[in-house]
Every structure is written in C-alpha cells, then in structure tokens.
C-alpha cells in the first residue's frame, strides 16, 4: 500500500502577461494550475482563507471550485489556512481584547466553507510576529491559548479541527513555549500541525515534536530548509522570512540537500498509525530563479521514489513485528 493522501498547499506563482502572478490571475491559469497538480497525483488541496471569495467568484461558488478539483481527480479541499502574521489593533492573538473579532473572522471563514465535501483542518498561525509580541511570557501564551480554545470549539461544531502551525518567527517557537501552549490548550479543541521547515529553523526537531504530540497532530507541511536560525533572525522587523540579513531563502523543496530527514519522518508517521493528509508546501520557491512548477514536480518525484521506499520499509517493519 502506498500513501495516497497527499495534498498541496496553495502558494504558487506562474508567469502571466502581467509578470509572475499567482495562478488565480484568471480562471484559465487556475484551471491549468489544478491540472498540473492533478497530473502529479495530488488528491487534496489546501488554500488560504483569503482566496475563498476569489475562488467562489471564479467558479461560481467555493463548492463549484471543489467540483472542478474533483473533476480532476482530487478528493476535496482538505485544509483552510487562517493567519494574523502581523498584529494590528484589530487582530492580535496575544491581545485578549481582539479575540471577539478573530472569532468573528473565523465564523465568516467557516460560513464560506459551507457546502464543501469536508474540510478537515482549520489551520491557524497561533500568534503574530515575535517582535510584535515580545516579551513572550507564560501569560502571553495563556492568552493565545484561550483564543484558540474558543476557535477550536467553534470549528469542531462545523466538522473542522483547529490545528496550530507554528512559524520560526512567531511568538511561540521554542520547545518549552510549544509545550506550554499545548498544556494550556484543550486537547479536544486544539491540535498540532507540523511544518517541518519552520520547526527546524527554530531549532526544534519536527520528528520529536510529532513523536511527542502524535495524539494531537492532524497534519504536516512537508518542506525543507538549509538553515537553522543562528542569528536571532526571528526577531527581524517587520519580516524575518524575506528580510533576515544572513539568510535570503529559508524554504526548499524536499530532496535538495536540506536539514529535514523526511524518510525518518515518513517511517515515524507509518509506525505511529497516523492516517491523515500529508501536505506539500512550497513557500517563496521563486527566490533565486526557482520555479514553483519544477519545485512541485521534484517534490512529488521525491514522494514517489524516496518516501515511497521509506514507507514500504516501515510497513515491512510493522509486518515483521506482527
């Protein structure tokens, strides 16, 4: 048996007559994008909350877009990503007074997803940037946890799991901070989404995180990095992903000599009995002349060859134990 639940997180940029643009440039580009993911064999699609209205306009409705995905071999929209990377006076997860607004935003997003086959993950960035949030105290983490407990209860009522995707530049980034956050959040309402590159950059072992929080893990972003943040880049205002002085490109596709041990993670996933979606994400793949299209194809090649072998090896190991 080979893992079939591979989804793709929508970050693409493609060439258009108006220069490099997201495939949402127009319907024809979006159609071509979906067909390309389909050709490689992806069957799940994750996207950002802020794309939902545009997709609805382009395909008649968000379920209309999902039907186009399904016509091309996809099972469904699997995850919706919601985030407040920049803290504002309206929305800042570490500011309790903004929580009602954030909950209202999440309610609107959930409403936009009505009629879909069954989005599984409501993926959230639990905090804004570190530099806007610091000092990060236990109380700060408690305030943030309270917000996502509320949102988690809400999304569960709509059949979606609130699952937290941590950034290396977010306010909750170290292992002790992560542990405290999960201690403060209700395991029934708040789950863990493992972005392999983000944790590695922050100096956290993503495989150990998965091992320790297996029961709360509901998804992954399989992406790689070649750097651990050794110069406190996470504190760079206003944005460490593109403005860190020592590292110009943080994220890479699998199989390009990065730091994440994906075969080991794959074996750990199989051994654990996890049976959810595995998501490929490319973020800023165009930096240095790269192409999202090629990065996606190369990553899928890695899945079909290297990870498939790791998976098979893990399954053989499980069989031999039985």
């Amino acid at each position: 048996m080979t893992w079939t639940k591979w989804s793709y997180m929508d970050h693409w940029v493609t060439e258009t007559p108006q220069g490099p643009q997201p495939p949402s440039f127009n319907r024809a580009y979006m159609d071509r994008y979906v067909k390309q993911l389909s050709a490689l064999g992806f069957t799940g699609f994750d996207t950002f909350f802020f794309y939902l209205h545009m997709l609805g306009g382009m395909y008649g409705s968000v379920p209309g877009f999902e039907r186009f995905l399904q016509d091309n071999g996809f099972e469904k929209i699997t995850g919706i990503f919601s985030a407040y990377p920049s803290a504002t006076r309206y929305t800042a997860p570490h500011v309790r007074e903004t929580h009602d607004r954030i909950v209202a935003d999440c309610t609107n997003t959930l409403r936009t997803c009505e009629g879909l086959t069954g989005v599984e993950n409501f993926i959230v960035m639990p905090t804004s940037t570190y530099w806007q949030t610091e000092p990060v105290t236990d109380d700060t983490i408690k305030v943030v946890a309270d917000l996502w407990n509320r949102v988690g209860k809400l999304t569960l009522e709509h059949g979606m799991t609130t699952t937290c995707h941590f950034e290396f530049w977010g306010a909750i980034r170290t292992r002790p901070q992560l542990e405290l956050f999960f201690e403060y959040t209700d395991p029934e309402y708040v789950y863990f989404f493992c972005d392999t590159a983000q944790h590695t950059i922050a100096g956290v072992d993503p495989i150990q995180m998965f091992r320790d929080y297996r029961d709360r893990c509901t998804g992954f972003h399989f992406k790689d990095t070649k750097n651990v943040d050794e110069h406190e880049a996470y504190r760079t205002p206003p944005d460490p992903e593109l403005m860190a002085p020592h590292v110009t490109r943080w994220f890479y596709e699998m199989g390009e000599g990065g730091l994440v041990d994906f075969p080991a993670l794959m074996k750990e996933i199989v051994a654990s009995g996890y049976d959810g979606w595995l998501t490929v994400e490319h973020d800023k793949a165009e930096l240095g002349g790269g192409s999202y299209a090629e990065a996606t194809a190369v990553a899928k090649w890695y899945i079909d060859n290297v990870l498939a072998e790791a998976e098979a090896e893990a399954r053989r190991g499980l069989e031999s134990v039985r």
Binding site: Q36, S38, A39, L40, E294, A297
Partner: peptide, 21 residues
C-alpha cells in the same frame, strides 16, 4: 515554463487520452 508544460501534457494524456501514469 518547461515543468508546467510537462505537467499539462501529462494531465492531457491521463485525463483526455485515458493513459495511466
């Protein structure tokens, strides 16, 4: 973009010509 075109050609073979990958 050659990768984009390769994927679109593959899609066409799989979905329009019924060729299994």
């Amino acid at each position: 973009n050659p990768a984009e075109l390769a994927m679109l050609n593959s899609w066409y073979l799989q979905h329009e010509l019924g060729v299994a990958k």
